[in-house]
Write a protein that binds this DNA or RNA. Sequence first.
DNA 1: ACATCCCTCAACAAACGGTTGAAGGTTCGG
DNA 2: CCGAACCTTCAACCGTTTGTTGAGGGATGT
Lengths: 243, 243
Amino acid sequence: MAKSERLARPVSITGRSTRSIGEVITFLRDEFPELSVSKIRFLETQGLIDPQRSQSGYREFTDDDLRRIQYVLREQRDHFLPLKVIKAKLQAWEAGTKSGPAAESGPPADIYFAEPTEALDASELATACGLDPDVIGDLISLGILRPRTSSRGTWIFDEVDRSVGHAAARLLDRGLDLRHLRSIKLGADREYDVLIQLAGPLLRHNNPESRQRATDILADTAHAASQLQEGVLKGRLRAELRP
Amino acid sequence: MAKSERLARPVSITGRSTRSIGEVITFLRDEFPELSVSKIRFLETQGLIDPQRSQSGYREFTDDDLRRIQYVLREQRDHFLPLKVIKAKLQAWEAGTKSGPAAESGPPADIYFAEPTEALDASELATACGLDPDVIGDLISLGILRPRTSSRGTWIFDEVDRSVGHAAARLLDRGLDLRHLRSIKLGADREYDVLIQLAGPLLRHNNPESRQRATDILADTAHAASQLQEGVLKGRLRAELRP
DNA sequence: ACATCCCTCAACAAACGGTTGAAGGTTCGG
DNA sequence: CCGAACCTTCAACCGTTTGTTGAGGGATGT
């Protein structure tokens, strides 16, 4: 009985069981023809994956492990990220759900609100985000993008605009339309109002120390608010997906 | 005359003249303290820059050259791009036409929607989050925390609840009250509705592959939506903080 | 039993991103 | 005109990243 259970190993990604390292290769060969056994083992030595082991020491890859490998390979292929960075991203996302005593507070204010380091014009933004140039005007009129205006009257976008534009492009690709983006923007506006109401008095104070303090509070609170909303959404979706 | 012109070499970036390689270093040292002469020369051998030369063979860097170096260094520092890719981007930009970038993808679905790995009861959650036990009931009745219920009727929280609880605790500490949290929660609800409307048909399909596909889309879209909202908020706050 | 898979561990290696040093020319102030 | 402080090229060297290869041996499936 136990023996026949061990032998049964459905090959489908939807199956309940696990796959050996060789099966992983054949599984991903369509998308990643270059993938090798040694590379997967290498990813393990680098701490990017950590599959369970069988009694005899064989690696056993779950569906989750498979998707994780897929993600790593895509980040390498599509965004040229070094494995260290991919690992950090994976860990950051895990921390979002599994955070231990760390993450007492958000990123420091100077990271959250650093001075802009990029200056893109509209066409640069469009190509950087894979966004139709026409849509950029829409996003601006919705208040989703908030470019500065140069002396010559053209728009100047910074790196926050770029990340916003990128997220918007992803959503539009997925079939959402501007109406949906607008409703997300309204959510951000409400958070903004609350935060300003909270830190406003400190911000208007002329004392630079109060200002700095207000900035810190704002950064941390904004981060927490975003975390909260993402967490609530995640929780509801998880509940929905749970069989 | 010609001689005095060669000698006059304004140091400002706005000046019309050019800078020697050493002057470039001192110029960029604020933003890139590690920058070396050899690195700039190396960038030239790799074809990323191509400064003019003086009669005697010295490199002469224009303001454009400076901005180009700045761009290269920022792409390295902020986006970890290999020099080859940066070079390709520069060339594409010079060619006037630009290829569409690969869509940036979010975390893999298994990280966004992994099966719960933690099971906390209410008091464990309270201590883990630094949250008053009384408040937990409030958060549940607001729908912010969504615990499962054990067979004995007690609440079971998972790691998403913990991160939500943590964020809520931070916000309450900062002076927000439950009313504010509720409005954030409503924002999440609206995003949830949109996403379910989008992926619902796929989710209800029995084909496990469609289900998986729907889960992936949902994870990516949820992530993009959160990114968008956080980005919009960040942008508004930045604008507010800008002097 | 025997092919085929899997394991570890160590050695190797190609590409990337520079640094260092030798040998020598240029510029500038005194 | 000299010396200090620049600048030049070129070749050799270096650490890190990202794996591959091979030896030696165990596990699995038919």
